[in-house]
């Protein structure tokens, strides 16, 4: 398979304010979010990032999307450096996370046109892509309704359409089915599998084990900013359920740090 994402030794620390130190119950002025994280992903696969809250999954995805920079290391998306070639990376990646919102005032139709223009698409390509994605997600029905008046599921469909408006090589979704009803969630998972079949590389960060088992080809378990386990689903599970195996890995990591679970 063709390697399309190469994450090399990412390190990232955040300084903690006094308030954050109180919340985190720590005296340390810095929090290590990523501690030398490395992994690779390939075209035509779905790679799942699993980890507890605060493990560094979202930080990793934000670095991949060029929203933030690592302190050390780099990530290469289709050969473009996330540190040095941000604009190129943004052309090759489709990023969706719950922290990215759509402007309530505009309609899906306008927003699609706006973001496709930002991606430098001409009108012909834009119209074809719009017809394809709006048809796939059923957005045609509410294309002229303001985002403010859409349901959560409708908004998520519009967000996905806009995230991949430019037909990116790498699709990075953070908790793609969070808060969605079962029908919309199925639409999203079917879409991700379809993208995989089209040769795209899909990176998914999620807490939902069933979703990982359903769509991921390979999994990386991140704890405390480090990749502690990686492989195909079967390799990581080791003959057990993914959930049981995950808790075993997590418990071991806590015990190694001398913490109670």
């Amino acid at each position: 398979m063709q390697e399309i994402l190469d994450v090399r030794g990412l390190k990232k620390t955040f300084s903690l304010s006094a308030k954050q130190r109180r919340i985190e119950r720590t005296d340390s002025r810095v929090k290590v979010a990523l501690d030398g994280l490395s992994f690779k992903a390939y075209a035509g696969e779905v790679y799942g990032l699993l980890g507890p809250n605060g493990a560094g999954k979202t930080t990793c995805l934000r670095i991949l999307s060029t929203l933030i920079k690592p302190d050390e290391g780099d990530a290469f998306v289709a050969g473009a450096s996330a540190v040095k070639e941000e604009a190129k990376v943004r052309e090759k990646i489709g990023f969706l996370t719950s922290e990215l919102k759509l402007e309530d005032f505009f309609t899906p139709n306008y927003l699609f046109d706006f973001f496709s223009e930002l991606h430098g698409m001409d009108e012909h390509a834009r119209a074809a892509r719009k017809a394809e994605l709006f048809g796939k997600f059923g957005i045609d029905r509410f294309a002229e309704v303001k985002v403010a008046d859409l349901s959560t599921g409708m908004k998520q469909k519009v967000s996905i359409a806009i995230a991949i408006v430019h037909d990116p090589d790498v699709i990075v979704f953070d908790e793609p089915t969070n808060g969605l009803d079962v029908i919309t969630a199925k639409t999203v998972t079917d879409f991700l599998l379809e993208q995989k079949s089209l040769g795209k590389c899909v990176i998914v960060s999620t807490h939902i084990f069933s979703l990982v088992e359903k769509i991921c080809d390979r999994v990386g378990v991140i704890i405390d900013g480090k990749l502690v386990s990686e492989g195909t689903l079967d390799e990581v599970r080791g003959g057990r359920s993914l959930e049981d195996k995950f808790f075993e890995i997590y418990s071991e990591s806590r015990r190694a740090k001398g913490e109670e679970i």
Binding site: T66, E99, L100
Partner: peptide, 17 residues
């Protein structure tokens, strides 16, 4: 306002400088 609502980040992940 855009920062507060999270719509600014949506803009920043596009190729626009």
């Amino acid at each position: 306002g855009e920062k507060e609502r999270g719509t600014f980040a949506t803009l920043l992940v596009t190729p626009v400088s």
